[in-house]
């Protein structure tokens, strides 16, 4: 009798795990964007917590929605192939920190934003989610397109964001190309610049340390 009961429990647990997985895998790109955006907006409008706590909360919410390694690979483009693995390992968290520093401070000005989730297009492993952010105070509509990739992780992750038609990856790609030239400048120069830039941000405002771990090169 006991064994039957435990068997039943195991079965129930397995069923729960299975359905849980199905739900996770079937979360559509537009749902991921909707859930993440809404939770970020609710954190931003929560005036009870201080700036540091708010930023940490936002960081935690968005962190696993982005594929920072893919973003780094795409922004460094041809340079990614020539640099050593340890340089990649250094670059990814620095780049992530830079993005967080730049965008977290910007985000705080947009706590009153209203977002319309227009549509999603899926083509194989690639998806685009079209949204329009409407700032209530300025009454300006800003089109934002999120580009997501379904990698071996079984969940969609953002690898590029287009604001007003301007791609984040392309913006940094051209900047890094200018800094690194045609490949004759040492990569450490770019790493130093990123470190310096991040230092400036942490001097200006409160910034918690990045927790990203590089998993390996693709």
């Amino acid at each position: 009798m006991v064994s039957k009961k435990s068997k039943g429990l195991v079965l129930l647990a397995m069923l729960l795990i299975l359905t849980g997985n199905v739900v996770a895998a079937s979360t559509t790109p537009i749902e991921i964007i909707r859930i993440t955006t809404e939770s970020v907006l609710s954190i931003l409008s929560d005036k009870a917590i201080d700036v540091t706590a708010r930023r940490t909360k936002v960081r935690k919410t968005v962190e696993d929605k982005f594929d920072f390694e893919e973003m780094s690979r795409r922004t460094l483009s041809t340079h990614w192939n020539r640099i050593a693995n340890n340089e990649k390992r250094e670059f990814v968290p620095l780049f992530k920190e830079l993005l967080e520093n730049v965008y977290l401070s910007k985000l705080e000005q947009y706590a009153d934003v209203r977002v319309k989730y227009q549509k999603e297009t899926i083509e194989g492993n690639y998806a685009s989610v079209f949204t329009i952010a409407n700032t209530v105070s300025a009454d300006v509509e800003i089109p934002i397109i999120y580009k997501l990739l379904l990698k071996d992780t079984k969940s969609w992750k953002i690898y590029d964001v287009q604001i007003e038609g301007i791609s984040l990856v392309n913006n940094y790609r051209s900047q890094f190309n200018q800094i690194l030239g045609t490949g004759n400048k040492p990569f450490s120069q770019l790493l130093d610049m990123l470190r310096k830039k991040n230092m400036e941000f942490s001097k200006d405002s409160v910034s918690t340390s990045s927790t990203y771990k590089f998993t390996g090169s693709k």
Partner: peptide
């Protein structure tokens, strides 16, 4: 066109997925 770093090269008839529209 801003070249990428992928090992996959586009072939005849394929699509450039990443685009930025005219501003």
């Amino acid at each position: 066109i801003a070249p990428g770093g992928s090992e996959n090269i586009l072939k005849e008839g394929e699509n450039i997925k990443e685009t930025e529209s005219a501003i």
